[in-house]
């Protein structure tokens, strides 16, 4: 299970990141009620307190809204959703640029490469965002 998390960053931050991906891509719809801490812990195979901490992060950012009695809901704030999405895209691009620079490519080469690679059939169709990349459970272990 650790395989799905990087060793060098706290798990709750990585978890919060995956939750954000799910929210901005609409995998979790605006206004939707979120799964319980226990269920999320089970889905990602992590400690419930870690989930709690990641959710607290989302609440601080306003992406998740706690209701006193009925759990947590995804924000319906369009502006916030858009800016978060942009933020994630910027981070991903920075990451990408960093790697290309490490390979010795310059900005123009990078942009050119992006134009070539980015074809329509590379659209992330049906990809489930923020999915815990657990291996599929084999049929029977015995």
């Amino acid at each position: 299970m650790t395989g799905s998390f990087d060793a060098d960053r706290p798990i709750y931050q990585q978890l919060a990141h995956r939750f954000r991906e799910r929210i901005v891509t609409g995998y979790w719809q605006p206004g939707e009620r979120m799964a319980s801490v226990r269920d999320l812990a089970l889905e990602y195979g992590v400690n419930p307190n870690t989930v709690q901490r990641a959710l607290a992060e989302l609440e601080r950012e306003g992406l998740a809204i706690p209701e006193r009695t009925s759990g947590r809901f995804i924000t319906e704030d369009e502006v916030l959703l858009r800016s978060t999405k942009r933020q994630l895209a910027v981070e991903a691009t920075e990451e990408w640029a960093k790697r290309l620079r490490a390979l010795g490519l310059n900005r123009a080469e990078g942009a050119q490469l992006a134009a070539v690679v980015w074809t329509d059939n590379h659209e992330p169709n049906g990809h489930e965002p923020g999915k815990p990349d657990k291996p599929d459970k084999p049929d029977k272990g015995e």
Binding site: M1, R38, A41, L42, G45, N47, P48, K137, G141, E142
Partner: peptide, 19 residues
């Protein structure tokens, strides 16, 4: 136990554990 069962056991632990 084998890795797949490990996963199941850890899930069992998380499922039953209370705060």
């Amino acid at each position: 136990v084998d890795p797949a069962s490990r996963q199941l056991i850890l899930e069992g632990i998380l499922r039953s554990y209370s705060s």
